[in-house]
Design a binder for these strands. Structure first.
Lengths: 252, 252
DNA sequence: CGTTCCATTGAGATGTGTCAATTCAAGTGG
DNA sequence: CCACTTGAATTGACACATCTCAATGGAACG
């Protein structure tokens, strides 16, 4: 018995409706959670000028690769991307998932070379923000400088939350924490907080959370048996948010 | 049989020699690895003006606490600090150790409130850099802006390395990776890369690496038995760097 | 010289990894 | 439209690294 939530899950601006390309930050649906936040409208126009809106990325295409020259940071317009590093012995470590309105690529600043790779998990579109222009603009617009400092600082605090999760929490807690994170990021974009489609595979989830696929799968099954979740492949419905929060919060 | 490496380990500018307080970035021994990097000398003077050099912190004193208003970032002048977060259920997660020349506190920028606490592991001295002044100065000095972006970016990439370590690596690999990190940070300050004193407790090491004290202790014992390390409480001597690197690198 | 904190070591418990088999979904080509 | 292939997800059985609990030893300090 397969139930489809496709209608809800795909409420995202799908790349197919390209006739309505966002041509300006000023009228972008996402500008409340993206870069322009806290900028005056004439400043937004200046920012607009440096931003390049590229063609959509197909699923599994790379936005950049580890070691590439660092030129730009990117704002996700639609779709989802994952960032990952390749360890010396060739394994992957997923370091983050990026949803519409979120910025990625900032880890390349320190060495002028990307410290991780970024790959589209589904058809996605991004706004490219050339970093040198952003730097110049930042010296002229203190608000922009501050906003960008804040964005980087948030990346740090989020990484630290993941560190804590990996270091202290059980498989169940890690998975529930990720689900709640995705749920709240959906809510921020005015999408359903309880029904959504996971854009990433079980492998990616496990990799991100420091677990094997099997463990992730078992946790999903367990949560479903407990009537906290309804899982149908990548379609997720949260049936009992409170219980899910309780599980994520910490040891019972 | 207790061997002491104290002379080497304490080669650091100890806080007791306060008669020779650093009064300027220009003549600070650490300026090659600290903020002033890449600044012209007249710029360094300007930076100097905003930096406040406070009194030393005693062991286990806090530099700031989670939730404190964010005012400044800090450069370690001498000693060592640890940063940690307290989880909802009251446990600690150590998120980093900070040695002389390193900057901490940047995770407070995003919310104007410190996301973690910082505590001295031994008597330590820090330079306080008021962030609002740093911001203003950054708009005037593009090099400083860039340098600070880079510092934050490095913090991100370092957190990501820790994420990978926690997610993928065995207890042995985690401990050896930390030892090598401390070793190279010592080398950067022209101290011995093979003999040093660990400023943090086993508990802190375990906490940082997502391991229990007992596991950390067992790893030390095992490495000692393998003649890779000599361990005498907090005094460490690396006997076989290559083998240590090999262990840290990855699965055998 | 006790007290306290930290580190070490042992024995046993357990959560998660590993390996292997099966099912399911989505294409692909005949 | 059906067989076939392929990759993803699930489930089970077992192994093992690390955790937990407990006892001991040692160093620092008043």
């Amino acid at each position: 018995m397969t139930v489809r939530f496709t209608e809800v899950a795909n409420a995202d601006p799908a790349p197919q409706c390209t006739h309505d390309y966002q041509v300006s930050c000023g009228n972008c649906r996402l500008n409340a959670i993206c870069l322009p936040l806290a900028l005056k409208s004439e400043d937004i126009d200046q920012l607009d000028d440096i931003i390049q809106r590229g063609k959509p990325l197909q699923k599994s295409q790379h936005l950049y690769r580890e070691g590439d020259d660092f030129q730009s940071v990117y704002a996700v317009r639609s779709g989802t991307l994952k960032a990952y590093k390749t360890t010396d012995d060739g394994r992957e470590q997923v370091t983050g998932f990026y949803f519409p309105g979120e910025i990625l690529g900032m880890d390349g600043i320190s060495n002028n070379s990307h410290a991780s790779s970024a790959k589209a998990l589904e058809t996605s579109a991004v706004c490219e923000i050339p970093f040198s222009s952003l730097e110049k603009l930042s010296t002229l617009m203190p608000n922009l400088q501050r906003h960008f400092f804040q964005l980087m600082s948030r990346e740090i605090t989020e990484d630290q939350m993941l560190i804590t999760l990996l270091s202290k929490n059980s498989a169940e807690e890690r998975v529930t924490a990720l689900l709640l994170s995705i749920s709240s990021r959906n809510a921020r974009r005015k999408l359903s907080a309880t029904q959504f489609r996971l854009p990433m595979s079980r492998v990616d989830i496990g990799n991100y959370l420091g677990l094997t696929v099997e463990t992730v799968s078992r946790v999903f099954s367990r949560l479903q048996k407990m009537d906290i979740l309804r899982v149908d492949n990548k379609e997720i419905e949260i049936l009992d948010v409170n219980e899910l929060r309780r599980l994520a919060d910490s040891m019972n």
